[in-house]
Amino acid sequence: MNQFKRLSPFLGGCTAIAVLALLLVIYTLTRPVPMAGTKNITVDVVYEDGSTDHYQLKTEEQFLLGALRTIPGITLEGTTTEELGLMVTEINGRQADYKKGGAYWALLCDGEPCSYGVSQQAIKDGEHYTFQYTPADGKGGGT
């Protein structure tokens, strides 16, 4: 038991370092890598009633939020946290706030849920993004 007590900080230290190294490797392999250069992207906003606004742009920005900020006809509101970036609750004056109405703006990349939020989503050339009004029951706007 004494031997275990003496070994325990050493083993604990090794475990902690191994966990830290593993996390760093996994994060390095999976983190969003932004693309340099000009990218052509399209953005759709699908509202509660099913109506859609469509935007097409050419951008040098690396993340989606930066690109959206360059579009004059679109306004985004929400709450910003250090961990998740901007949590969109209002687009072009239309609200989808989970805390108020139980609905949210789902962000889709080529029709599939994006891996990251609007602030951290790295954009790729030719990609199509959709902000979909989504009630808590999961059915999208206009459905």
Partner: peptide, 23 residues
Amino acid sequence: LLYKKNCPSSFSAALLSGTFGML
């Protein structure tokens, strides 16, 4: 499981707490 009867050192407790935080 690890410290049934013994009190760990500050360092061991910190390692346990730190590893838990990372996971």
